[in-house]
Amino acid sequence: MDAKPNVKMIRIDERLIHGQGQLWIKSLGVNLVICANDKAAADSMQQSLMKAVVPKDIGLRFWNIERTAKIIWKALPNQSIFVVVSSPKDVLTLAEQGFPVGEVNVGNIHAKEGKEKVSQFIYLGEEDKEALRTLRDKFGCTFNTKTSPVSNDGEQSLEKLESILG
């Protein structure tokens, strides 16, 4: 069995990598960012925009969900990794394919019809809730809802998230 990869954080953010991501990269002290998203993995324009906000000395990979789950076990011991996905369902798919998932940062899920407000930045639909429940109940995941590493706005949101998930 390969050694467990050094995944510092998995963040759910519909915007994937953007300006705020720089704060997470610096705060976590990572040297590799994986954007695990089927669409972004195939969209060079989107990749170019995301590359612009990641420091040049940080590795950046755009892989689909399946490849991320497989290749993570090839990570070197000196790689500290920040994984960004766009939805709770993506994290669940990673977990179901053997990706090591511990704590998940539920960062930014936009408002849409049929979604329940958790915080200013987090709205969950039934599919989101079901994925998070499964992550918690089957895979033992824990969650945090910090919008950025420098904010302390996560506690109330986390309480609301936990009450919504039941």
Score class of each variant (00 low, 15 high):
Cys141Val: 10
Val85Trp: 09
Lys129Gly: 12
Ala111Gln: 04
Ala75Gln: 13
Ala40Glu: 01
Glu155Asn: 14
Arg61Val: 15
Lys112Asp: 08
Asn64Thr: 07
Asn31Arg: 01
Gly107Cys: 05
Tyr123Val: 07
Tyr123Gln: 07
Trp63Ile: 02
Gly154Trp: 08
His110Lys: 10
Met50Arg: 02
Ser27Cys: 04
Glu127Gly: 12
Ile72Gly: 08
Gly21Cys: 09
Arg15Trp: 05
Thr134Gln: 10
Pro55Leu: 05
Gly125Tyr: 11
Leu132Phe: 14
Gln120Ile: 11
Ala69Lys: 04
Gly107Phe: 08
Leu32Ile: 11
Asp43Trp: 10
Met50Pro: 04
Ser163Thr: 07
Asp2Met: 13
Ser86Asp: 14
Ser148His: 00
Ser80Met: 07
Gly98Ile: 12
Ile25Val: 08
Lys115Ser: 14
Val106Ile: 14
Asn31Ala: 01
Thr68Ser: 10
Lys115Val: 13
Pro77Val: 13
Asp90Arg: 08
Leu161Glu: 02
Ser119His: 09
Gly102Glu: 15
Gly102Cys: 08
Ser86His: 14
Val91Trp: 06
Asp90Gln: 01
Met9Pro: 01
Val7Met: 00
Pro88Ile: 07
Ala131Asp: 00
Gln22Val: 13
Ile58Gly: 06
Gly98Phe: 11
Pro149Arg: 01
Lys51Ser: 07
Asn6Arg: 10
Gln156Leu: 15
Lys115Pro: 10
Ala41Gln: 00
Asn105Lys: 01
Gln97Ile: 13
Ser148Asp: 05
Gly102Ser: 14
Glu130Trp: 06
Pro77Trp: 03
Ser87Glu: 07
Phe121Trp: 12
Lys115Arg: 15
Leu32Asp: 02
Leu158Gln: 11
Gly102Asn: 13
Ala52Cys: 03
Lys138Met: 03
Ser80Asp: 11
Val91Thr: 07
Glu14Ile: 02
Leu92Phe: 09
Ser80Phe: 08
Ile164Lys: 02
Glu159Met: 10
His18Gln: 01
Ala95Ser: 10
Pro55Arg: 00
Met1Lys: 03
Arg61Asn: 11
Glu126His: 14
Leu60Arg: 06
Ala75Val: 11
Val53Arg: 00
Met9Phe: 02
Asp153Gln: 04
